[in-house]
């Protein structure tokens, strides 16, 4: 069978990222078994949970990029959620007492960073608004929970609450039409 070549020569494909994923998958798979095993054998604090979550964060944020909607705002929000959970785990499982102070600072910083990205090109990022909305909602809910549960409220939480609620207010006034359409799209079930 004689084949007449009618396609251009394919370029060489770089496979380093694929290789990195493969190596990481093996290492993480190995650690998934070994870390809890050692933790159970040695006893003590459940540090292996922190290790596992840190690996999951690395995989999810760095090695398994989103195939749909990969933009600065969505990545800030995704990273923040993973980091907040990691900080929460460290606080609860290993070294308690600081997370309620640190997490609001990290969240407020992420909220401001996402907002700056949004403002660099409002027209373009209007279509990537949803992660920012989610982050604002999470932050405002966290503020309300701390406020109504009468947990001691430090300045970082107040700052986070102020930023989040200001954003909600401004967002509703400036983008109410757009928000209505955005919610209809994002929550359609047909």
């Amino acid at each position: 069978m004689k084949i007449e070549i009618t396609y251009p020569e394919p370029p060489r494909v770089s496979r380093w990222f694929e290789l990195l994923r493969k190596v990481a998958r093996w290492i993480f798979g190995f650690a998934l078994v070994i870390a809890p095993g050692i933790n159970i054998l040695l006893g003590g604090k459940p540090w292996s949970l922190v290790v596992l979550w840190a690996m999951w964060t690395t995989w999810n944020v760095l090695l398994s990029p989103d195939i749909v909607e990969f933009n600065p705002i969505s990545q800030i929000v995704k990273s923040l959620i993973h980091i907040v959970i990691l900080l929460g785990l460290i606080d609860v499982l290993l070294a308690p007492g600081w997370a309620s102070f640190v997490i609001p600072i990290v969240a407020a910083a992420a909220l401001v960073a996402a907002l700056i990205f949004f403002l660099t090109d409002v027209r373009q990022h209007q279509h990537n608004m949803m992660p920012l909305i989610w982050l604002t909602l999470y932050s405002s809910i966290a503020f309300l929970v701390v406020f109504f549960a009468e947990i001691s409220m430090d300045w970082p939480m107040i700052a986070l609450g102020v930023v989040a609620w200001t954003l909600i207010g401004v967002g509703i006034v400036a983008f109410h039409k757009y928000l209505r359409i955005e919610f209809a799209k994002r929550f359609h079930w047909k």
Binding site: P8, P10, H127, K185, H188
Partner: peptide
């Protein structure tokens, strides 16, 4: 359109841009 992620389903969101042609490279 651009593929987007909703809470329940993905959807196609219309996009206004310059849609480009490109020379073939590699396999289909």
């Amino acid at each position: 359109t651009t593929l987007k992620r909703g809470f329940f389903w993905h959807y196609l969101d219309s996009t206004k841009r310059r849609f480009v042609i490109e020379p073939e490279s590699g396999h289909p």
